[in-house]
């Protein structure tokens, strides 16, 4: 009989955590971490690697019990997703900046009318690019699923720690969106409407885009509409997400007529 490789404690932990994460994804995150049992994980590890693990290998050695293991898996999941959110934003950033450059092509940014038009074009083009990237990555689902999984670990004091991780990831996304919006404000010579802040806008924008993705998955895509918003009243194609973002931009920002570069 083939001799079983001896795993160090840390290797065993890593193997079990990865198997647990994979099971949670496959079984459906919405149904929570409770479906994650040691037996299921042992079976999976054996099927994939040929390594046999028993309760005696892990209980007391790596985790105090199954609940502690579940929390560890969800924590790993949370950390991975937080990191993935960050990397998604990097990709979005690049795509959005390219679309901004296209939107502003040929505009005279010393002219307030052109700057107002530039804001509209950025909303129209960049929202399509940004929400396309979000849709492809199923970012919002992963994030919300992760949240549900965390809540699924009921009765655990560690839930607080996991919620903190989620909050940190969301805050980081907000900060990056805020940075992007600030850059655009400077570029276009915009100022906030009285009483409103860049933080208010960014929160509204992010909430809208995430909610839009969620609704889109449930209700299906909404067709684009044609609006006479071109420079000379010509027709332009608008996604519904872009209409929403443009509405928000108009309410929160205004062109600063005194802005100078």
């Amino acid at each position: 009989m083939k001799r079983q490789p001896r795993l160090r404690r840390e290797e065993l932990r890593s193997l079990m955590l990865e198997a647990g994460r994979a099971i949670l994804f496959e079984d459906g995150l919405g149904l929570s971490a409770e479906s994650l049992t040691f037996k299921k994980v042992f079976d999976r590890v054996e099927a994939e690697t040929g390594i046999r693990i028993t309760n005696a290998s892990v209980i007391g050695r790596v985790w105090s019990g199954q609940d502690a293991y579940r929390v560890d898996v969800v924590d790993r999941l949370a950390t991975t997703m937080a990191a993935e959110d960050g990397s998604l934003l990097d990709t979005e950033y690049e795509a959005v900046f390219i679309s901004v450059a296209v939107a502003l092509e040929g505009l005279d940014l010393t002219d307030p009318d052109d700057r107002a038009f530039g804001l509209q074009e950025i909303a129209r083009r960049s929202t399509r690019v940004g929400s396309g990237a979000m849709e492809e990555s199923r970012w919002v689902f992963r994030t919300v699923a992760w949240m549900m999984t965390v809540f699924g670990v009921s009765g655990q004091k560690d839930v607080d720690v996991l919620q903190h991780t989620m909050g940190t990831a969301y805050t980081r996304s907000l900060e990056r969106f805020r940075e992007l919006n600030s850059t655009l404000m400077t570029l276009l010579g915009l100022r906030m409407q009285p009483g409103l802040s860049i933080d208010d806008f960014t929160r509204a924008q992010m909430a809208f885009l995430e909610g839009f993705q969620l609704r889109q998955a449930i209700e299906g895509p909404l067709p684009d509409v044609i609006l006479p918003t071109g420079h000379d009243g010509s027709d332009q194609e608008w996604s519904m997400a872009a209409i929403g973002v443009q509405a928000l931009a108009q309410r929160y920002f205004e062109v600063d007529p005194e802005h100078s570069w």
């Binding site: 909430a207 995430e210 929403g244």
Partner: peptide, 8 residues
Amino acid sequence: ALADGFVR
């Protein structure tokens, strides 16, 4: 969508 996003 806006309401869902704010609640989340």
